[in-house]
Simulated assay, not measured.
Amino acid sequence: MERSFKLVRLGEDQKTIYPMYFLKGEVIYWWDSVKALEEVQPVTWNRLKELFLEKYYPKYMQKQMEMKFLELKQESMTVLEYEKKFTELSRFVTKYVETDEEKAQRFQQGLEYWIRDRVSMFEIDTYVRVVQKAALIESNGAQSRKERDNKKRKLFYQKERSESGYQHDKNVKRIGFQKGWNAQ
């Protein structure tokens, strides 16, 4: 709403009227009852936000979202999935990410340890750069694991082939020896 206020250049006295056209269902009835109780004085935009949050985003929910945010770790998510969840939750607890540097630090703290260790070497202090570097490190790590696994598989098959070839040679010699012995 506040972004749209800037777009349509609303004055303070209009800020509580404009949003009412966007309310639907039960919220309309809630607002009508609140307005009737607050009718002694005009409801300011700040008071409307306060009343709305009190009703639809109470303190206990705010605490829950704060805990979810503080406990958020990358774990089994990719960096980009983690970033999406981080962004979703951070909008509820802006006090922890007031600056770009704080946001970058907080994001970095939740990364998987092997990614976090590599990212921290770069001493990055912007959120976008931390996310980019973490995604790059994760991608390179996945590529390295794939190459390592391919090498292991190749070595395993080479060893297996050489052993089976050796076994084949022994079997041929044994069969040939037996045939020669039987012929005599």
Rank of each mutant, 00 (worst) to 15 (best):
K63E: 15
S162D: 15
R148S: 10
K170V: 13
E75K: 14
N171I: 04
M67D: 04
S144H: 06
R153Y: 11
T16R: 01
E138C: 06
K49E: 05
S162Y: 07
R3I: 06
S120Y: 02
K95F: 12
L23G: 01
R118F: 01
M121F: 00
E98F: 04
V43Y: 03
E81S: 12
A104V: 12
R106V: 11
W45S: 05
K95L: 05
D100G: 03
E54L: 11
V27D: 10
M77R: 06
Q64N: 08
R91F: 02
D100L: 00
K68M: 14
R9N: 08
N46W: 00
K73V: 14
V79M: 05
M61C: 05
E102V: 03
I17F: 11
S4L: 03
P19Y: 01
K84Q: 15
E75A: 11
V34G: 02
I124V: 11
D32V: 13
D32A: 13
K103N: 02
E2C: 00
K6H: 02
R174I: 07
V43F: 07
V93R: 04
P42N: 13
N46D: 11
R106A: 06
V79L: 01
S162L: 10
F177E: 13
E98H: 03
R153G: 03
R129K: 15
